[in-house]
Write a protein that binds this DNA or RNA. Structure first.
Lengths: 267, 267
DNA sequence: AAGTGGTCTAGACCACGTT
DNA sequence: ACGTGGTCTAGACCACTTT
């Protein structure tokens, strides 16, 4: 099976020196060529997307993958290196390479960029206010790659640190992917939402884009956060993506930044 | 000279298989070991910091560096790869490896994360309001690694897009590093501030940390931005670093996010 | 001792840009 | 034609973890 893939790869995409040796210089390099390690990276992502290995599990060793794909260990290595840099995989020397999971202590809440002005970082408490099924708006459907009128699950929750409300989240998920998700399930679950979505629904968030603006608190948000109206809030619009860049979550957060700030690094 | 360095590296840090072959198995690996490519990366950063190669210039080819450091091309490659990933260097196939510069069109304003809600991204106009020399506050001195009472240059400017004011920046630079910087120089210069600091003062910003909060506009900022008081603004506190993680700039921006947003990617 | 990822080397050849 | 970075291979050995 893999030998077939290999041949196809080489024929359509790239002439490795091995192939040159084997086949002679028959074919010219094509206009758009993609290196072997990129193709292998793509195949690994597809395997992750199809759930061949679940979050937290080990993927096959480099040597094993190398024999499977009929390439050298170094080529597999480069593919895995990039996936590790993108946090799809986690390497552990001496143990193996694992599918990244939102349950891991070091990764938990890694998409939550709020840090306290003083004191230690601590995990938030989540209180679910509502979880309703509704029709996607036109813009929502477009962002999530849904058809107009498809169902989404709308969640509203409040995050608190040390008992003080700091964030109101409005979360929208394609109902087709998260069938059965309810307020009860959300409430009874401890840990990050993305951990739940990963374990119970097999959808692993790996990347997100955010748009930040400053807005005045509406009366709605001011009551939810226990602050006076018109107080400035940090509004965070997020689109989250799973493997292969499929958008699967829309989220708007309203952050109270009196005692917390949104941290970012520019490189 | 390089042979000496090489020997020292090997003795203190790491036993390459070459070294093992040469020296036999005399020394045991030390507790804290740093791979060769990391050491070479460090030496390259030091060279950049000392200005051995200026922004925009090419550094020596990989083969040249390999013979200099007495390692294989692959080891140099790994060091350069990491520096390219951190945007200290820029690789160009067929041409060479270059020191990253803020003048490059693709890099210009890469620390400015404001994007328009609609329409094309465009470069900002800068209007310098003041440029004064003053004493660093205690906290400022601490952040910049200065002694209490050292001089800093304080710059206030307004950035506009399509003639509309969008940002007020308050910038603080160690006077010792930027002697002679004046409002005139700032005003007569076209392009990003970091480009000027790089060309005229030899200080290249490579990394920055930001803290974002939402605040109400004071009367001061509301007049500068031409908006009503108490309007929500995005406050961005930034510390910028040059090579080897030395902090060299403190900056607070107040962003009007009516028509622009702060974009961010979580990975 | 065995298995995994991590480092390093040496050599071949490809793709890209310049001469 | 040549020099640069980019890819790929094969093999050795190191560091870390588990058996």
């Amino acid at each position: 099976m893999y030998a077939t893939i290999r041949t196809q790869l080489l024929m359509t995409k790239f002439m490795s020196d091995t192939a040159s040796r084997l086949l002679g210089s028959i074919a010219k390099p094509t206009a758009a060529f993609s290196p072997l390690y990129q193709q292998i990276k793509g195949m690994l992502v597809r395997a992750l997307d199809e759930g061949e290995w679940k979050p937290g599990e080990a993927i096959p060793s480099e040597i094993e993958l190398a024999t499977r794909f009929q390439v050298s260990q170094g080529t597999v290595r480069k593919a895995v290196d990039e996936l590790a840099a993108e946090h799809l995989l986690v390497r552990r020397q001496g143990k193996g390479t694992f599918v990244a999971t939102h349950h891991e202590p070091k990764i938990r809440f890694r998409f939550l960029r709020l840090a306290p002005n003083s004191g230690e970082q601590q995990p938030p408490q989540s209180k679910v206010l509502s979880c309703k099924r509704q029709r996607a708006s036109a813009e929502m459907a477009r962002s999530l790659g849904l058809k107009a009128g498809d169902s989404v699950i709308a969640i509203r929750r409040v995050l608190s640190f040390a008992g003080k409300a700091a964030v109101v989240d409005d979360i929208f998920l394609p109902a087709a992917l998260f069938n059965g998700l309810s307020a009860d399930i959300l409430t009874s679950y401890v840990g990050p939402l993305y951990g739940l979505l990963e374990s119970k629904f097999g959808v692993n968030m790996v990347r997100a884009d955010e748009k930040l603006t400053a807005v005045a608190a509406t009366t709605e948000f001011s009551t939810l956060l226990g602050i006076e109206p018109d107080k400035p809030l940090l509004k965070v619009d997020r689109i989250s993506y799973t493997y292969a860049d499929r958008p699967v979550e829309l989220r708007t957060g309203h952050y109270l930044t009196d005692h917390y700030y949104y941290r970012n690094s520019l490189i």
